[in-house]
Design a protein around this nucleic acid. Structure first.
Length: 601
RNA sequence: GCCGGUGUAGCUCAGGGGUAGAGCAGCUGAUUCGUAAUCAGCAGGUCGCGGGUUCGAAUCCCAUCGCCGGCUCCA
């Protein structure tokens, strides 16, 4: 989301105060228009503020104009924000008298946390339970730097079992310029959106007839995927992973053993009954890999066993949750399960962190990602019931983060049902946070599947299992890459790496030769021999973000050269074809993110 | 799934009760061109789908589907 590049903490705090004050102004205006509207909460957020209201009739976009007008009118009266405080019982009685049931609940919560007093802010006729701070009065609000934005439904306290409130979002900044910049940035984000670019670049298609959340990759999109798959499979093989292949269907029984059926059923498709036996589409690969492990006795000597697979999986999602390639129902995860001795879990995990670090670096996403340590929360029913193992695994996970100086954000409530996770997080261009990769210590499944190995002393022991994804879900990773690079992907994953543009028909034979020579090296090349002007061919190729354009005219044909334009620098240089080809091949093979074969900066 | 918004040609959009329009893309022809749109012509839509109101619906109403933003959920 929008962050002012040079904002010091004080200014940031001031802005947050202003935004919060705007939210009160909003609530005041709303209560003028709809006295029956009950108040939820109204905090400052990254780009402004919102306020939640309990109303019979949800607000529509058309209401915003009128509300904003009233806000401006109220602000024009130069109202002061004044604070007062009172005891819990008094506050509760006051709010109850006003019919503010949601606020009463907040007071009760504060009371149960041991608070003895609460604070109210008064703005004109409008009073609200609020700890502040606020600006002194409405004359301090930058009215030209704010704007009501949109409406949305939001469950009270984020709980879908509780009533849905009507939320009004507003944008607010310190200056009109900042507001304009934010709106401009939003438009830029729209242009970078992988859904838009994916269509323009012809990478994937989501057909309602096939099904929402079930993307299909075109040849170009498939080329990107293949580049990523080859990269990760080769890298994993180098690092001791064993690549395997397992089916996407499995007996329901298998998932009853794993606990998925009990803990994860909401995300699974209903069983397919075949001759009296129930099968389910797999939501995860772990049970299959466990059965591979369990198929024969294992010695401590062969541990750690690292089974990897780029595995298709299907998870049921509610329709409103699907987004382009980022949130889908059928996807492909670069998954692996590492079976190790319990005492080896740290080195094994360190090795996993090293791999994902390498992957992020190679993809060029490292500086945009951060770590999240995902632990349990109080909703015990979501997790396997094994408090001691949880405590141990969470402790291990924390220690690993500390040892590796990962600076992970700790977040309760995001753990897998079978163990804590170390996630790699990233933000979409739209500002929404998503998980790119995830790694887990599994405290439960080895036991449920009775996995074991023979230890040095001949005893049978239970291995620990680490689940991890190295390059994540291919669909999602591609979406992030497209957004991060605004479509101008690194050479090695670009569907078309070089485009040959002959100036006239006379150069057709030479252009074909250039293409053939580059292709013989394994590069992906297109020839544009249409009867179009060079200007047009260049324009179209640039819009397609082709890394290198090779213009060949009579001069190049005569000399055996190409005049290549560099996508990233927009510079060009004329050089012998052999030399250009070798340089591009080198960049391709090295998975370089810098284009320097021609027109280097 | 819930709340709000939205759906007109492949794409971007105009039109808002009297049975459809532009630009680009496409096709045909001419142009043989040195780094971001050569010119001309042609073709293209039962206005998401289904009901209803009306003499008449792309336009109003209802329902439904897709898409977008949010909530919930999540790789």
């Amino acid at each position: 989301m929008y962050q002012h590049p040079t904002m010091d903490p004080q200014t940031q705090e001031r802005l947050s105060t202003i935004r919060h004050s705007f939210s009160h102004l909003l609530a005041a205006a709303v209560q003028q228009m709809r006295p029956e509207a009950k108040l939820g909460i109204g905090p400052a957020i990254d780009d402004g503020f919102y306020y939640d209201f309990l109303v019979d009739q949800p607000f529509s976009l058309a209401d915003l104009k009128e509300i904003e007008k009233r806000m401006r009118k109220l602000a024009g009266r130069k109202l002061a924000f004044s604070q007062s405080s009172m005891g819990m019982a008094e506050a509760k009685a006051l709010l109850a008298g006003q019919g503010e049931a949601l606020k009463v609940e907040l007071v009760e919560d504060l009371a149960s946390q041991g608070e003895t007093e609460v604070s109210f802010y008064q703005l004109g006729d409008f009073s609200d339970l609020c700890k502040g701070p606020h600006v002194a009065g409405t004359q301090e609000l930058p009215l030209k730097a704010f704007k009501l934005d949109r409406v949305a439904g939001a469950y009270w306290r984020g709980d879908e079992k509780r009533p849905m409130l009507s939320r009004i979002y507003g944008l607010a900044f310190l200056t009109p310029e900042d507001l304009a910049a934010h709106i401009e940035q939003r438009e830029e984000a729209e242009r970078r959106d992988h859904r838009k670019l994916g269509k323009e670049m012809d990478l994937f298609v989501i057909s309602p007839d096939v099904g929402k959340g079930l993307p299909m990759f075109t040849d170009k999109g498939t080329t990107i995927r293949r580049a990523l798959e080859r990269f990760i499979v080769d890298e994993e093989l180098k690092r001791g992973y064993l690549h395997v292949q397992t089916p996407i269907l499995g007996r329901k029984h298998l998932y009853e053993i794993s606990g998925h059926w009990e803990h994860y059923q909401d995300s699974m498709y209903p069983p397919i009954n075949v001759d009296g036996e129930d099968y389910v589409l797999r939501p995860m690969t772990c049970p299959h890999h466990f059965m591979l492990y369990a198929a024969r006795p294992r010695s401590y000597r062969e541990l750690p066993v690292r089974y990897a697979e780029i595995s298709p999986m299907y998870r049921k999602e509610r329709s409103g949750e699907l987004t382009g390639l980022i949130r889908v129902m059928g996807f492909h995860l670069a998954d692996a399960h590492i079976f190790c001795k319990p005492e080896d879990v740290k080195p094994v995990f360190r090795e996993v962190v090293d791999l994902i670090g390498f992957v992020m670096e190679t993809l060029g996403l490292a500086e945009r990602c951060w770590y999240r340590l995902s632990l349990r929360d109080d909703h015990k029913e979501k997790y396997i019931d094994a408090p001691e193992s949880w405590a141990r695994a969470e402790k291990d996970m924390r220690e690993i983060c500390e040892e590796l100086k990962l600076d992970a954000q700790v977040e309760p409530g995001h753990a897998a049902f079978y163990g804590p996770k170390l996630d790699v997080q990233m933000a979409t261009v739209g500002g929404r946070e998503e998980t790119l990769f995830t790694n887990q210590i599994d405290i439960a499944l080895a036991q449920r599947f009775h996995l074991e190995y023979i230890a040095e002393d001949g005893s049978r022991r239970m291995p620990w299992v680490v689940h991890r994804s190295s390059i994540g879900c291919l669909e999602r990773t591609i979406a992030f890459l497209v957004e991060h690079y605004a479509g101008a992907l690194p050479l090695w994953m670009m569907p078309v790496q070089v485009k040959v543009l002959p100036i006239t028909d006379e150069q057709a034979p030479y252009a074909a030769q250039v293409k053939a020579q580059l292709e013989a090296l394994g590069l992906r090349v297109e020839l544009d021999d249409r009867k179009e002007t060079l200007n047009r061919k260049v324009r179209e190729a640039k819009m397609q973000k082709i890394p290198y354009l090779c213009v060949v005219g009579s001069r190049e044909a005569l000399e055996g050269t190409v005049t290549a334009t560099n996508r990233d620098t927009d510079r060009k240089s004329t050089l012998p074809l052999d030399q250009f080809a070798a340089a591009v091949l080198k960049e391709h093979a090295a998975r370089s993110r810098v284009l320097a074969a021609a027109g280097a900066a």
